[in-house]
Design a protein around this nucleic acid. Sequence first.
DNA 1: CGTTCAGTTGACCATGATCAAGAGTGGTGG
DNA 2: CCACCACTCTTGATCATGGTCAACTGAACG
Lengths: 257, 257
Amino acid sequence: MPNALTRRLEEYTVLTDADRDELARLAAQSTRTIPPRRDLIREGDAPRSVYLILEGWACHYRSLSDGRRQTVDFAVPGDLCDLNLFILDRMDHSIGAITKLKVAEIGRDVFHRVVTNYPNITTALWWQELVSKSIHREWIVNVAQRSASERIAHLFCEMFLRLESVGLTDGFSCDFPPTQGDIADATGLTAVHVNRSIQALRARELVILERQKLTIPDMMALQASGLFNPDYLHHGRLGRHTDRHRHLQSLRDGTYG
Amino acid sequence: MPNALTRRLEEYTVLTDADRDELARLAAQSTRTIPPRRDLIREGDAPRSVYLILEGWACHYRSLSDGRRQTVDFAVPGDLCDLNLFILDRMDHSIGAITKLKVAEIGRDVFHRVVTNYPNITTALWWQELVSKSIHREWIVNVAQRSASERIAHLFCEMFLRLESVGLTDGFSCDFPPTQGDIADATGLTAVHVNRSIQALRARELVILERQKLTIPDMMALQASGLFNPDYLHHGRLGRHTDRHRHLQSLRDGTYG
DNA sequence: CGTTCAGTTGACCATGATCAAGAGTGGTGG
DNA sequence: CCACCACTCTTGATCATGGTCAACTGAACG
């Protein structure tokens, strides 16, 4: 399997061979395995390192004082959690493993060295940061405006496309390990209602979901049913905006890297 | 009035006199006035400049294909909208004026010059970016998990503290220009239900809201009623974490500025 | 002084929550 | 290999929060 991080970042930036080698090194050094349902890091902790997901699914979540919990994003291979390390002093949310997880732990020093020596990578990391902010915005819209079935359809579309961009789909299918309870945490619904809503989607033949495997027979139909517009993912931009790339190049010659 | 942007950024970074002068220049050059209810920039547009709010309130919002709209954040004096300019090629959301707005328009060249020459400012801008991402996370929690009254109480707490951090509160009060319809757009409720929920808060003497003026007689009580925990705003951190500041300094000597 | 827009109130309705129980599935140890 | 346990999924009945539609009031501004 090619490096998922490389694939993600190349969605946006042209990377040199040296960049790719460095990313491969990052992904290889200091890997850890986390059992399912264990927390990687908790709200209030001081971030020690940046985690790169190599295999498995995780979730970013916040807890309320009365015990309610809300997942604010999923993390899949190629995702970095997060750049907070360098700017904020405490985690404002937790990161938990959904499946067994393989992560690369990137310490301050290593990360600093990369940021110093690899300008393309640095720019790409900030791009990833802004895209994930855009995803947050879409999740606000999702839970605030869409009906239960729409929310779930939307989530399926998003995760499928995010996995596709790192090469983890197979035709119309992909792994989908979150339980119905996990989906409930992410969509602001109860597990019972998630169950009924998924059955409605199944009845309309919009999704097949069994044994942690998601199949979307007609992506356009599912997108329509979830009022899904993929623009917010900012995928596939590369090469279409040479003007912007020239501009970014000039930034790099300056201070960004 | 002292420069709101300076106050915001000093929440986090130590700025030199030169930094402050530069921020004052930024806020002074190329200002524009926008009438209420007009869009500053729309979803799909190519961002031309960064906007700095000098006076008034704006909102960031997304529209669904069927006409529904969701506000994903408010912007008040001292807020920058957003750094997308340098990384993403299209706006994934719109920014609309709630009140009459005074903004400074900062073009690419000017912005680039600042980022090149003022490392403290650059770091502080990224801090602002990450804090606003954290605010997005909290809004997801807000609309997904809290009841109508809780959501509105939470919004009041957040906006009051954000205004306080730029010196725009007066004792227990602050301006609060959004209409009940605007609050509905931000909380995923209808205007009718916002009305009834505010009445409930009033009946419990948690807020006084009249003529665009919000008074919070007992902030702790309001926070409790909205399950509000201010940590996610990352305010008032400055000086408490000298270790982190040393680290940031080393970053600045490297590549971040 | 009238027009417009925000705020308010009432009656009724629908989406999704809650509570409870049962069925399917997978993993573990005897 | 089978029995048991835990967890996820499924189904049903009832309830409550908040939505919808419609009318009316009050304040602000030209």
